[in-house]
Amino acid sequence: MSRSVLECEGLVRAFGDLVAVDDVGFTIAEGETYGLLGPNGAGKTTTISMIAGILEPDAGSVRVDGEAVTTTTTGAKAGIGYVPQDLAIYPDLTAAENLRFFGKLHGLRGSGLDERVGRVLDVIGLVDRAGDRAETYSGGMKRRLNIGIGLLHEPRLLILDEPTVGVDPQSRNAILESVESLSGEGLAVLYTTHYMEEAERLCDRVGIIDAGRIQAEGARRQLVGLVGERDRVRLGITGRAEHAAAAAASLSAVVEASAGDGCIELIVNDARSALPGIFEAVGSVDAGINGVEITEPNLEAVFLHLTGKALRDE
């Protein structure tokens, strides 16, 4: 096992009565990509903010390469590349100016700065537009610049907070590819998302977070094992999906049931033998079925299994 770059433990943060993050801790090793997977409001951004040293924790500690990170430390922060969830660029400055400014803030200067700015512009594909103001860029270009700033000073730990939200599929794929190649260079990456597919594709290990707590943690295979030898069944529903879910949940073969928008998701022991009974139960509550999908359990199923909720609320 290689050296750990990030170690955090016992992180707690409340906003008034709401405990947004409740005893969160994990480590990330060199070259490893760690995913925090959880729905909106789970506490991902709050956790990351404490790790990046921009939010004071109520309890707990963060170390990067063995050095403590707090809101006032400057040494340890130099090792972190932080890409906020919302765009954090100056629209009235050009890409090159944005990069140069943040590069200088991170202590780069002279030819080293020039070299890194040129390199990052190349990586994020903005060489041709480097002299245009960021406000003239497309959404995808702004996102790429946003990420590029985090890479500029060659951090040991790169923190990406939901970098693909609101991004068109093409840019999204480009972002995922570049994250994959970055971890290959020995960078430790902390990646938050509420997209199960991204976590499955990118992350060596995933922490499933809900309601401020890490519910389970491990490689994809380990997590899926938590669900057991079960299948995931997704039914398209006409009529009241909640009623259909409740009816299905009453069957002994159905382990978990949740209702979505026009569909229900089930975790089922042996889908083949259980399906007729499920169709009957759903039909009995005056709901129609307009589609069936049976898959192997994935992280979404794990989340459902752990929390009784669907990962996505859309």
Binding site: S49, T72, I89
Partner: peptide, 15 residues
């Protein structure tokens, strides 16, 4: 508002 404050805070400089 612009979202750049988190980035300034994350930089290795005293707030």
């Amino acid at each position: 508002i612009e979202g750049t404050m988190p980035r300034l805070l994350a930089a290795p400089i005293p707030p």
